[in-house]
């Protein structure tokens, strides 16, 4: 991948010649000023977590207004514990629905995970047993959420560091059952897919082929760290790897030109570095869609 230092304006000029692939960035507090100072054309959209803005006044509310004035906003939640058993708080879903309505976001997404039990919240994305019953249960809850927030819903498959002894499905099989039973969209996270393939000794390209890519509404791209024992941790603190770019090239012909998001949650780089990554994503989009 390119490593030369290019200024934002060069990237923007190149962007206009590239594909119609919409490329955005995850709006994080640590990136806020950097993104808001950047030319608006650098990104086609941003994505944010509603939990960090819902019910906030003051600085966060102003930040949200500034962001929504500049870019279309996609929303991606962290809190719903879709595979859990705890009932969804009705008032929360109502507030969330209003928030999404006000932002005019086309869909909302959250994670295929469990994070709460018996009313206690871990606030961590914990893996679900890959069983038919869990997929069925999760699909039912997704339909409940989508109906309550009155928005199309999509699920993101998470990075995992362990598998349950109870597993009876492969991860792509599990995801396919959830997506088909709930009739929801797929948020395809290519870094998560790659991390899981490495952590469980699978072939990432084969995994990708087995995913329900026809349901993809959005793609996430990010980097990860590798521990001393080889375990890959989904930190979003490093550059996207070449392998994950390759997966994007493999996925796009089947997903079509869905919005692609660059996630960076820590170890925040300079704008030029972010733009180098979005540029790479646009180049791949250009190769895939203009070569047809």
């Amino acid at each position: 991948m390119g490593s030369q230092s290019l200024c934002p304006l060069i990237y923007m000029a190149e962007q206009s010649t590239l594909s119609s692939l919409q490329v955005g960035v995850g709006f994080r507090r640590g990136l806020a000023e950097l993104l808001l100072d950047a030319p608006v054309e650098c990104f086609d959209f941003v994505e944010l977590a509603p939990e960090n803005y819902l019910g906030f006044g003051g600085q966060k509310h102003r930040l949200l207004e500034r962001v929504a004035d500049r870019w279309p906003v996609l929303t991606h939640g962290l809190a719903l514990s879709l595979g859990g058993n705890d009932p969804f708080p009705h008032d929360y879903l109502e507030e969330l629905g209003q928030f999404l309505h006000d932002l005019e976001t086309p869909h909302h997404s959250d994670h295929l995970c469990i994070s709460s039990a018996n009313g206690s919240h871990s606030h961590e994305l914990l893996p679900l047993p890959l069983t038919r019953d869990t997929a069925h249960h999760t699909a039912r809850r997704i339909r409940e959420v989508s109906s309550a927030i009155q928005k199309p819903f999509a699920v993101e498959h998470i990075s995992a560091y362990a598998r349950w002894p109870e597993d009876e499905l492969s991860e792509p099989e599990f995801i396919r059952q959830v997506v088909e039973e709930s009739d929801c969209g797929l948020l395809l996270d290519l870094n998560n897919l790659y991390v899981n393939a490495c952590n469980f000794g699978l072939d990432a390209s084969e995994m990708l082929e087995q995913m329900p890519l026809e349901a993809t509404v959005q793609i996430h791209m990010a980097g990860h760290t590798v521990r001393h024992d080889g375990l890959r941790i989904d930190t979003h603190s490093e550059d996207i790897t070449d392998e994950v770019y390759s997966l994007l090239k493999q996925a796009l012909p089947r997903t079509g030109p869905v919005p692609v998001l660059l996630e960076r949650d820590d170890n925040f780089p300079a704008l030029e570095e972010l733009l180098r990554e979005t540029h790479e994503i646009r180049q791949i989009g250009n190769e895939v869609f203009h070569a047809r």
């Binding site: 994070s115 206690s120 961590e124 362990a162």
Partner: peptide, 27 residues
């Protein structure tokens, strides 16, 4: 449900039985 066991494990001060490998990482 097994998934809930991991939530409880992650929150417990002195968990006894790990419900799955690398549960300590999640904890």
């Amino acid at each position: 449900m097994p998934g809930e066991a991991l939530v409880r494990y992650a929150l417990a001060a002195n968990p006894i039985e790990s419900p799955l490998p690398r549960a300590d990482l999640y904890r």
